[in-house]
Design a protein around this nucleic acid. Structure first.
Lengths: 217, 217
DNA sequence: ATTTCATGTCGTCAATTGACGACATAAAAT
DNA sequence: ATTTTATGTCGTCAATTGACGACATGAAAT
């Protein structure tokens, strides 16, 4: 045990950057569990420091929350995913399954989801931002790779193709919400669930495109 | 204009039941927008009555919230849906589309969704209850009707078939979350979206079943 | 007309909560 | 060793907030 382990939480003096990082880390966990209305005093308590100290690093609670979002929400996306998803030397089905298993483990965690939903429920523009800056690209890649694999001619309208890709992405996001928020007991192994979603999407894409064109009379 | 329209909100004396109903109605809207931490004073203000009066009808804020949930969350499901979904004189695809258009309009509203999520984020057992008491039955009906139509032999494990039905129900629920919470601009008409989801589910069900069986080696 | 009682308001209490000034102290610079 | 600076705490203020006692008032019963 190092010499740092005496108070476990965060007593002994820390350099600016470290303490700030520690508070941020604990704050993300804290607000994720207690909501954005969680008290700064409790947060400080969880950090093992005085409440006043928190205000040394973040002028207001708002600023702290903004920082948490930027760090935790936007920071949870791996850049490499885009490349892997487009690596056509691997079968699409496998690519999609691996990606979503990873995405579920890395991004769609309890902490991330709760923060994301709390933020969306307040009026923050965080969710739209996240979707615009990250998810939209992801949807494009998904639908393009799926269409290529299934030899499907896609509608030109990007809003429509996005909506199609959402059938997969939304379903899996909702699976995560069910698991982490609704406390559903997940009796079917995750890989099976992901595999079912992906298979269904790939096989159902062509019929879905036809359904859309049929609507356009 | 009737003689009641002078104060518009809720001044002039009302009989017990009416005032109670009015407070409940406004409270559901209020907490849906402002979260469960919304202040009783603001609520009273929105009702056009004194804060004290609210406590005449509900001993504590907790009790008021509990009543709102019971009324708004559980009360938003039409009993007739189960019958309509099983009316085999109508094509499944049409049945499913009509049901989900109705479900989106009646249940998956902004008010309902926000309440449901706020409640889920606190530790209330409301979401699990709702799922156990209503959604599970719905999932059973959906998968049974779809399998019958597509001449599919389903796995015996109910957890698995539920999970399969969730691919449709979850995707549409998530579509509603996107619309009402993430403030996504919905440029594709709702009927088209519903039609695409339903078509995809029906066409993808068999491949999904195969994917599951394939996993079970 | 007077009594009765439910409907409704005012004012207030005690706990909470974001924010910050004043002070203490450890570490680094001189 | 002494000065300097940044790290950290204590106590407190003002606004908020759930809850409620005491009082007012309109309608219905006698």
């Amino acid at each position: 045990m190092g010499k740092k382990s005496e108070a476990a939480k965060g007593s002994s003096r820390l350099p600016h950057a470290e303490r700030r990082a520690q508070i941020l880390e604990i704050a993300s966990e804290f607000f994720s569990e207690n909501g954005l209305t969680g008290q700064t005093r409790r947060l400080a308590e969880a950090c093992g420091v005085s409440q006043r100290l928190v205000y040394r690093f973040f002028p207001t609670k708002e600023d702290l929350l903004a920082e948490v979002y930027r760090e935790e929400i936007l920071g949870a996306f791996k850049a490499g995913w885009f490349a892997e998803l487009q690596d056509r030397s691997v079968p699409v089905e496998k690519r999609f399954c691996l990606f979503y298993q990873d995405y579920l483990e890395t991004t769609l965690t309890r902490k991330w989801l709760r923060l994301f939903l709390y933020a969306s429920l307040s009026d923050s523009s965080m969710a739209p931002d996240y979707i615009a800056s990250i998810v939209t690209q992801l949807l494009d890649v998904l639908i393009r790779e799926a269409a290529f694999d299934q030899h499907i001619e896609l509608p030109k309208n990007r809003d429509v193709t996005n909506e199609m890709a959402w059938t997969l992405h939304g379903a899996i996001s909702h699976y995560a919400i069910r698991r982490h928020l609704y406390k559903a007991s997940m009796r079917v192994p995750e890989e099976s669930v992901v595999a079912m979603h992906v298979r269904m999407f790939l096989a159902g894409l062509k019929p879905m495109v036809e359904a859309y064109q049929q609507e356009q009379l």
